[in-house]
């Protein structure tokens, strides 16, 4: 119990540190953020406008005051205001985060699910199935994410023209209809598959190795001698041991998935949070950069906390200890 409490406290401290980091990082970059508000081709911004923006971005105040405004923007839900985009950061992120989550969360669920089933089956007994599966996964693990994406595009978009290669929807379908919903799924299949295939092997390997390690335990040998069916052993004993590391792994893979989504969004021309971040970096849009970093870190930390809590709740040792 104490270990998990410590973990939770560490999460919170982490989070505070990330908040500070989000604030500091963009300001380390050189350049004048105000200059980006009118773009390169327009005539120079007038002095009144320039002063206005400098004040609005609090660039004239010292660093602590700026930090204070940043913290305030976190609490009042706006996450700051992007003058370049003329919208609150939270509204910009909200409009894009749907796409990113649709890809990364689905990929997490699917890849972890497949990894669990496959890894358990392979780890529960030695034999050719295990050898082939593991070899296949090792090979796929060596492919970087963009390669997987490109292969899929080449095979399924240009080779056999089944799937669309860009965007989230076809242009001529009405929003809000059932057709729109299925069209969205149609467009999401390849991006989700890319992320799934990229992350599946490492998750499969974790499950399989944990299962294999348990396999050598004496009590399993005993259970088999006693005649317990293979299935009962698999789901009763091995799963129990695999569950803990598995749940922790799921929590951490959410953060990795969001990062992986940046590459996928790039490949498939999807307007998600990843592209929002790269745009913000190019234009020194401080408020937007801070906001995206914050949201990404927030999601990653929350998912770790949630999975840790689930771990605590499902840990029989702890449950018994509490009684």
């Amino acid at each position: 119990m104490k270990k998990y409490l410590n973990n939770l406290i560490t999460c919170v401290i982490c989070f505070i540190f990330i908040v500070i980091l989000n604030f500091a990082l963009p300001r380390l970059m050189s350049g004048d953020p105000v200059a980006y508000l009118t773009g390169v081709d327009e005539e120079s911004m007038s002095v009144v406008q320039y002063e206005y923006y400098r004040n609005a971005l609090h660039l004239n105040d010292n660093i602590f005051v700026q930090f204070g405004y940043y913290i305030k923007s976190l609490f009042d839900g706006s996450l700051g205001y992007s003058y370049r985009m003329e919208a609150t950061v939270s509204s910009l992120i909200l409009s894009r985060i749907g796409a990113t989550l649709q890809i990364s969360l689905v990929a997490v669920v699917v890849s972890c699910g497949i990894a669990l089933v496959w890894g358990l089956s392979a780890g529960s007994k030695k034999g050719t199935f295990d050898k082939i599966s593991t070899t296949a996964n090792v090979i796929i693990n060596t492919l970087p994410s963009f390669t997987v994406g490109m292969l899929l595009i080449i095979l399924f978009c240009f080779g056999v023209k089944i799937f669309p290669y860009s965007g989230l929807n076809s242009p001529n379908i009405e929003k809000g209809t059932a057709e729109y919903f299925f069209d969205r799924i149609y467009h999401l299949i390849l991006p989700v598959t890319t992320l799934t295939v990229t992350f599946l092997p490492s998750r499969y390997l974790i499950v399989r190795n944990t299962a294999r390690a348990v396999l050598n335990e004496k009590y399993l040998l005993f259970a088999r001698q006693r005649g317990l069916g293979r299935r009962k052993i698999k789901y009763g004993y091995i799963l129990g041991n695999v569950a803990q590391p598995f749940i922790a792994m799921v929590g951490m893979s959410v953060g990795a998935s969001i990062g992986g989504s940046v590459v996928v969004e790039n490949l498939f021309s999807i307007q998600g949070m990843g592209t929002l971040l790269t745009d913000a970096v190019y234009a020194l849009d401080y408020p937007l950069m801070q906001g995206v970093l914050f949201v990404t870190a927030f999601i990653a930390v929350i998912s770790i906390i949630i999975t840790d809590v689930i771990c605590i709740l499902t840990d029989p040792k702890l449950r018994r200890a509490r009684l």
Binding site: I18, A256, G259, V262, G274, V281, T296
Partner: peptide
């Protein structure tokens, strides 16, 4: 462990 790796790398 908790920091989103790729996102931080882009900004850095």
């Amino acid at each position: 462990v908790m920091l989103p790796k790729l996102v931080c790398l882009i900004v850095l």
